[in-house]
Write a protein that binds this DNA or RNA. Structure first.
Lengths: 108, 108
DNA sequence: TCGAAATATCGAAGTAATTCGAATTATAGA
DNA sequence: TCTATAATTCGAATTACTTCGATATTTCGA
């Protein structure tokens, strides 16, 4: 998959969405369901995010869709639940883009 | 100076503003006036940017102000001209922030 | 000091983003 | 199959962003 830096920056430029992203990333990336959490112990699902933030479920869903659309987050259906998984590759791609611009200034 | 990642991401999330930033960065960062360009040969001034993009001067001015406000660009007055200088430190700060989030996922 | 050039500020129009509540779809389990 | 739970979609209200043209400010040079 290829990542669009502008779309990634836009996704990260909203404080709510950035907080949601950080929460999903902290929740881990193994994606292994073991039945210990509402959906799993190594990742978060929609309900976890809804419970964590003071935002309507529809708003969480909208922000999450943006995170998925830009590649920052991946989803897996797990029965009733939607597992949200970090995709650090997208962040790394945007970070690399920034470094390229920084270096184009002659900063070495 | 400290940099606000969210404000930097917002500044980078507009295609016009990102293009202006890239132009300023490519124009260099020495900030040494030698009289060879409209304002200088190692950097760009407002007029250079206005001449490069198909946007009204007031729009360029507004975007530049955002870039300066977030720390991505520095300005120096040079007589009639305003020199625009890259500040890669701000980009590096935002890039480092992204890497921290990426690493919080367990990606090592 | 006066005019021209560079840049900034202001106000307005159009567009996009954020958020919500209500209604809808999808799935698991009784 | 019916119900409860999880999540999404839709429509609307509010706010923010982008861009412009017109006007104002700053500075150089005649």
């Amino acid at each position: 998959m290829e990542y669009d830096p502008v779309e990634i920056f836009k996704a990260l430029s909203n404080p709510s969405r950035l907080a949601i992203l950080k929460f999903i990333y902290k929740s881990g990336m193994t994606g292994t369901f073991d039945g210990e959490g509402p959906c799993c112990a190594q990742c978060s699902c929609m309900g976890d995010v809804v419970g964590k933030f003071d935002l309507a479920p529809s708003t969480i869903s909208h922000h999450t869709r943006e995170l998925v659309r830009t590649g920052l987050v991946r989803v897996e259906r797990d029965g009733q639940f939607i597992r949200l998984l970090p995709n650090p590759e997208a962040l790394e791609a945007a970070s690399a883009f920034m470094n390229t611009v920084a270096e184009s200034s002659g900063d070495r």
